[in-house]
Amino acid sequence: MINILFFARLQEEAGRESLHVEKAGYTIRELKEWLDEEYRLTGLNRTMTARNEEFTNDDAVIADGDTIAFIPPVSGG
């Protein structure tokens, strides 16, 4: 089981803050493709991803228990 987190605009689009799914073994890219089909989230392919709170890339393979967060362009400060 993996934990997916949505923030800002993506959270509004998904209509939820998080999602628990059986997608261990997927790459980030595959997960994005799956989410795009299931939830119709716009611009996921251009969204940065964090795996267990560190930025990662689309080729990273997701392990069981990972927390994957989609990080729209940040605007703090």
């Binding site: 923030f7 800002a8 964090a50 940040v74 605007s75 703090g76 400060g77």
Partner: peptide, 25 residues
Amino acid sequence: RIKELVPIWKKEYWEDGTAWVGDQL
């Protein structure tokens, strides 16, 4: 650096509408 990599998002409530700042759109 904060503006580049700290996961914080700002939503503006403009007089003429609402928008997430820094959005891909």
